[in-house]
Design a protein around this nucleic acid. Structure first.
Lengths: 137, 137
DNA sequence: TTTCGTGCAAATTATTTGCACTCCC
DNA sequence: GGGAGTGCAAATAATTTGCACGAAA
């Protein structure tokens, strides 16, 4: 199956109408490993879709993330969150209330493939889901 | 040792002059687990330091992160990065060139403590350091 | 025909910067 | 006095929103 048909059926399976912008964006996302920003997606597709606007890319990306066809690296919001606990530990963000919790994790024994030749300085682990406080409501 | 002295000596050890804003921000960061944003830090300290400005909080936070006294959750920039690869995998960002690489990781066997009662929907792992391309320069 | 997707522009929010003022060494 | 830290306001950057038009069901 061609990539474009792949994108179309992926959209259909989520009940998202396969418009030109949606198809092209999903197709572009699928064959790149560059983890592009909205800016990058916009400029990459502009030659192909000269009428494309950034607002459409933003709207399409939220749609795709909500449908589970794409994921957002880092947090939900674009605000920077800080932490003075420098030791390796994990963060859990509740998608309902937005609260962030720490948890303990052993990152030394983590098996990672594909990092040969890389110097790792910092390890972050980030989970999302629902916290007990919200689950009990 | 009192918390405030803790903060002062931490700053001194990094050759950062312990000004009132820096001490208070570091102290605040150290005894909270809420992973505050600049906005939150600013409003929490405003009663204590009525002359505080957000610009100072921003400047102080970059300083603390650079010195290794605090860490920034999520990426370096506040731009959202997207990925159509939904399977669990890790991301590595090179702090020199900014490129993001994927790597394979087995998150199922990860031992996490402190997540009893949580429903985990999504797992992200995020490393930072230097990539081979930059290391060979 | 009615709903949905798009594009523009304006609004909002997050962050950075330039500069003047002040406060210690 | 001079460099450093701060605060204000303006500038920039990222993202969201409102609205009108055109295309598709």
């Amino acid at each position: 199956m061609k990539e474009i048909d792949c994108a179309i059926s992926a959209l259909r399976s989520k009940n998202i109408r396969p418009s030109i912008a949606r198809i092209k964006i999903l197709e572009y996302l699928s064959h790149t490993t560059a983890h592009p920003t909205v800016e990058v997606i916009y400029h990459s597709l502009l030659p192909e879709i000269p009428t494309l606007s950034k607002a459409t890319v933003y709207k399409t990306m939220s749609l795709l993330v909500e449908a589970g066809l794409a994921r957002l690296l880092y947090g939900e919001d674009c605000e920077a969150h800080y932490d003075a606990n420098i030791s390796d530990h994990g963060h859990f963000q509740c998608t309902r209330c937005g609260r962030i919790y720490d948890f303990t994790v052993d990152l030394d024994n983590l098996e990672a493939e594909g990092l040969e030749g890389f110097t790792v300085v910092e390890k972050n682990i980030f989970f999302r889901g629902a916290c007990p406080r919200c689950l009990s409501d």
